[in-house]
Simulated scan of single mutants.
Amino acid sequence: MKAKILIVYASMTGNTEEMAHLIGDGVIQAGAVLVRKDIIEVSAADLQSYDGILIGAYTWGDGDLPDEFLDFYEEMDPLHLSGKKTAVFGSCSSSYEHRGRAVDLLIEKLTEIGADIKLKGLKIDLAPSSEEKKLCIQYGRSFVEKSFGLIGTVTP
């Protein structure tokens, strides 16, 4: 049976959404089943229904989670995601002191509730360049391969 992967993300300018789509392409290429949702379409409890979870959030201001992520973040507190395969990504800006801190905050929260972080957080300044687009696709593929082994690759 194929692993069922959820990508949940928040995006204001479309940069993190683009990352979510590219990472999702990599997940599909690696042979997993993908469900992709905007943060406003999902509750934290939904995370328990998936084999793997990729969470994407842009960093707001000087290192904050986006407003639309705050309720979801708090809803994560009572969850027990022991052993659940996860990774975090997001767009950010290197012009701020705490570049991509939303990614770091989500990794910390997932770790606190027992999730198994499979990849280092992926932070991309603003919109992904051509090379960074390839990196996003590879991030999705790597997540599936490191979490569930080689499920079966599809040539893009």
Rank of each mutant, 00 (worst) to 15 (best):
K146P: 03
N15K: 03
F89H: 03
Q138E: 09
C92Q: 13
F72M: 04
A44F: 11
P128E: 04
E68A: 12
K85D: 03
T86H: 02
K123M: 03
Y50H: 07
E108R: 02
Y73K: 03
I151T: 13
K120H: 08
A44C: 08
A115N: 08
D51V: 13
H80S: 09
E145R: 09
L150T: 14
Y73T: 02
L126A: 09
P66H: 05
M19E: 13
A32L: 04
D104N: 13
G114M: 08
I107R: 13
D77V: 14
I23A: 12
T111F: 06
L70F: 05
I53P: 00
S82R: 06
A10Y: 11
S91T: 07
V144N: 02
Y9W: 14
D51A: 08
D125F: 06
K146A: 11
D125Q: 05
V42S: 04
Y9A: 07
F89I: 07
I53T: 01
K84I: 10
D62M: 08
L54F: 12
Q29D: 14
L105W: 00
D51T: 12
P66D: 10
M19D: 06
K134A: 14
K123T: 05
L6Q: 14
S94R: 12
Y96L: 10
I53G: 00
Q138G: 03
I124D: 00
M19N: 09
I40H: 08
D104Y: 02
